[in-house]
Design a protein around this nucleic acid. Structure first.
Lengths: 166, 166
DNA sequence: ATGTATGCAAACCATTTGCAATGAC
DNA sequence: GTCATTGCAAATGGTTTGCATACAT
């Protein structure tokens, strides 16, 4: 029963973002193709973070193969209507995440293993969102904190103590 | 006289970062090639923000042509020793800025004209830098605030009032 | 019927890589 | 003399583009 509640919530979300996308497409006189809805639906039913390649494969796995051209085209629309966020750091690989109904959060990036972790902090969020900035109207923001995750810190310590013994 | 003071300061900075780089190269057993110092010197004598292409051209203009391979190689070293920062947003073009002796600041990015402006805010800086994060040791951070700059806001308003009259 | 969106394949372009030649140590 | 670093040119790989076809309106 707990499970079905979660399912309901997920399905509602998918329905909701579909509506949002629909409104956007209407407002911008774009065509409502099955590809576009299918891509959105996949994004909102599976992984929180993804890159283009995994999205491409996941679409194929769903037996709804689309071309990369369509994927990029659709992604641009989803970015424009803020249903998806795009991130880039260090590496030349962009990654994406669904944005709707997803709590605002920040990202911790380990410069040693390149792992990315979400980091929620209400104080930071409030302060940043409430900043009044001269001659600029903020819409959204990205905060990336780079550093060393505890796993890498542990490994580095081990290495150090080893080399000290030599 | 005002001018010469500024010059002195600039020259001191260039000297200082050269030393820093020198130490880094020594510590990491890297060779001290003229190319590496020339690239660092250019970065610290001219533009605050730059991309690889403009750096390549600027080096050529200085009659110190280096290959792009060397440019990327050196840039990696400068990133590693934190004398240079790398940024990427939206576009697939990376841009860089010198980091040493440069006050920590944030970036405002206009999603309409793509212009990037520095934004200094001590309160934000302090709060972010003093955050204690579980299982993670922060080293540095990037805060990108996306929105609409006042010039674009004005233009958009004009356009709206025009279309209202039609 | 009209013209936007798709799939495909080629093009693009920033970045990376392999290799021979150079030069820092 | 040794081997890291350079320059060059080719390769890579994510993203974009051009064009013929398909299909939403």
């Amino acid at each position: 029963m707990q499970e079905s509640l979660v399912m309901d919530k997920e399905n509602k979300l998918r329905e909701l973002v579909k509506q949002k996308f629909d409104e956007y497409l209407t407002a911008h006189k774009c065509r409502k193709t099955p590809e576009r809805y299918a891509i959105l639906d996949l994004i909102y039913s599976d992984p929180k973070h993804f890159d283009m390649d995994s999205l491409y494969e996941a679409m194929t796995d769903r037996n709804f193969r689309v071309s990369r051209a369509t994927l990029y085209n659709t992604m641009q629309l989803l970015l424009d209507c803020r249903l998806v966020l795009k991130h880039q750091f260090g590496q030349n690989l962009s990654f994406y995440e669904r944005a709707y109904n997803n709590e605002v959060h920040h990202h911790l990036i380990c410069t040693s293993c390149n792992k990315v972790v979400e980091y929620k902090d209400a104080e930071l969020k409030t302060l940043i969102q409430n900043k009044k900035i001269k001659q600029f109207t903020p819409v959204y923001y990205n905060l990336y904190i780079f550093g060393i995750c505890n796993i890498c810190a542990r490994n580095l310590k081990k290495q150090q103590s080893k080399s000290n013994k030599n």
